[in-house]
Amino acid sequence: MVEVRARRVRAAVAAAVAVLGAGAACGIAGAEAGSVAGKDRLVIGVNGDQPGVGERGGGGYAGFDIDIAREIARRLGVTGPDVAFKRVRSATREEMLQNGDVDLVVASYSVTPERKVKVSFAGPYYVAHQDILVRAADARKILSIHDLAGRRLCKVRGSVSFPRIHDEQGIAALPVEEDGYSACLTDLVERRLDAVSTDDLILAGLAAKASGSGHRLRVVNAPFTDEPYGVGIRKGDVDGCEAVNKAITGMYQDGTVPKLLGKWFGDTGLKLTTTVPQFEGCV
């Protein structure tokens, strides 16, 4: 009788372990299914107002970030009509990732400790540097960020660029608030502000666009920060992060990233970095 009871107990335990194991397996499968690494279709958040980086025109989205996003998607096995772009703004990137409106964000998205609390980052795929864009006629007056004290400086909602100068460097620039950098460019050429400060890739694209319209602008070439451009990803998607990192590494190893940098910024005079950046790590 004792042996019979023992066999029954062992059988019950084995059954319980089998059920728990099946449940755990389902949980793992569910997590994998939710990762960008396993998706058959990707919605990627991009900017629409940054010439040369991410801009929306009559033919759709174009720019360095757009090409990077397409190439990452291709290396994840997603191509053609299964890759969709959705416009994001500096103030909406975290929310759209958290809500599942986009799967990835490739949008001149600088990695910061504050943002890493809300989302995860793969990469970075490039390290830009914050600089200053001014009217060519004012280039002798504004030589560094210290010359921005008391001057009107564009402040894009949700961007870290203005706080880097005003809060971190303690320079009393006067904010002119806008939703995006195309509006900053318009304000600059129409003399409603004195300078735009953000990442050098963005500034180079803005200057090129203004030049095409007959306006002479100049990048000061006084960089004062490193801005690692990460690929925003849902918090906790480690599999997806590692897959994107693998894609970015391959893009440097086979020359894809240097080629794209040359395509979009080769004629701007910027000093471009073509070695793979140090990754943040997937957490």
Rank of each mutant, 00 (worst) to 15 (best):
T186Y: 12
V9R: 06
V176D: 02
M1S: 12
Y229M: 06
L261F: 08
G23C: 15
R5K: 15
M96K: 13
R93I: 07
R7D: 04
G230P: 00
T225M: 03
I202L: 05
I202R: 01
S110L: 09
L272P: 01
G262P: 04
E227L: 07
T273R: 15
G63Q: 03
A207N: 02
F279I: 07
I66P: 04
N221I: 02
G100E: 10
E114D: 15
R234H: 12
G250F: 00
V17C: 05
R70H: 09
V78H: 10
L217K: 04
K263P: 08
D67R: 06
C184T: 08
R152Q: 08
Y229N: 00
Q50L: 13
T275K: 15
Y109M: 07
L203G: 02
I171T: 07
L143F: 14
V276E: 14
R5W: 12
E95N: 12
G266K: 08
E227C: 06
R10V: 01
R218I: 13
H129P: 02
V105M: 10
R151P: 02
G269W: 13
E227R: 05
P228Y: 05
Q98T: 11
V196H: 00
K246S: 12
Y181P: 04
F224P: 01
A91M: 08
Y109R: 09
P163E: 07
V276S: 15
A73S: 13
L272W: 02
N99P: 11
V117P: 12
P223Q: 02
L217W: 00
V219S: 04
R75P: 06
Y125A: 00
L272M: 11
H129I: 07
F279Y: 11
P124T: 06
S144E: 10
G38Y: 13
N99T: 10
V231H: 01
R164P: 15
V283Q: 11
A107S: 11
D67S: 11
M251P: 00
V119G: 05
D199P: 05
S161M: 01
G100L: 11
D49I: 07
R70C: 08
I171N: 07
A183H: 11
K118H: 14
A208N: 09
A12M: 08
E32F: 15
Y252A: 08
D65R: 04
V43C: 08
E3F: 11
L20F: 01
R135I: 09
L260K: 03
Q130D: 05
A69V: 11
G38C: 14
Q169V: 14
A195H: 01
M1L: 13
S144I: 09
G58P: 03
V156F: 04
G27A: 14
G48A: 14
G205H: 01
G150N: 14
G230N: 05
F85Q: 02
A128S: 11
A149T: 06
H166Y: 14
L260H: 05
D194A: 08
G34H: 10
R5A: 13
Y125K: 04
A11S: 12
